[in-house]
């Protein structure tokens, strides 16, 4: 499968297979006017399969969000056709307005205009809990 070479842009690599579309939505890539390619189930040496996102523009990325999806994701910044930077996101201590609490008894289910905040409570097992009701993020 051939995807055009990026001159100035971003390649988000090693996305867990099947989660590329979710990331596409979270990052708001549907709102960009530049070319964006989502490659699903690309072969991966380490994991067997992976998803890749190629964005033909250097945009500000929410690294906390990427870290929440999977800290093993790789972000490659391309300028002038060359990779100038390679970064792994950290597992963020807190994520805001990325995911919503599923607990129907949580105040976030009724209170408008409040941020949906999840805090990292167990780094080893990557457990996030709602800052309001302590419900574990799924």
């Amino acid at each position: 499968m051939l995807i055009g070479t990026i001159v100035d842009g971003i390649v988000i690599d090693h996305i867990p297979a099947g989660r590329g579309m979710e990331l596409y939505g979270y990052l708001g890539l549907d709102k960009l006017n530049c070319e964006v390619a989502l490659i699903k189930n690309a072969p991966s040496g380490k994991r067997g399969k992976k998803d890749i996102l190629k964005i033909n523009e250097v945009i500000d990325l929410n690294f906390d969000l990427l870290g929440y999806i999977d800290p093993h994701i790789t972000v490659n910044i391309i300028r002038g056709g060359e990779r100038v930077e390679k970064r792994h996101p950290d597992l963020p201590d807190e994520i805001r307005d990325v995911i919503r609490c599923k607990n129907p008894r949580c105040i976030t289910s009724t209170e408008q205009e409040i941020q949906h905040i999840f805090k990292l409570t167990d780094r080893e097992n990557r457990v996030y809990r709602c800052a309001y009701c302590d419900t574990r993020a799924k």
């Binding site: 607990n103 008894r105 949580c106």
Partner: peptide, 29 residues
């Protein structure tokens, strides 16, 4: 009225709040 707005308003009248609410996390808001 939201819990957030009620908290802002009551702050003008009182020195401390004790809140009971059926929704989990309302006092944090």
């Amino acid at each position: 009225e939201s819990v957030a707005d009620t908290a802002r308003v009551i702050s003008c009248f009182a020195d401390i709040i004790a809140m009971r609410h059926p929704k989990e996390g309302a006092p944090r808001v």
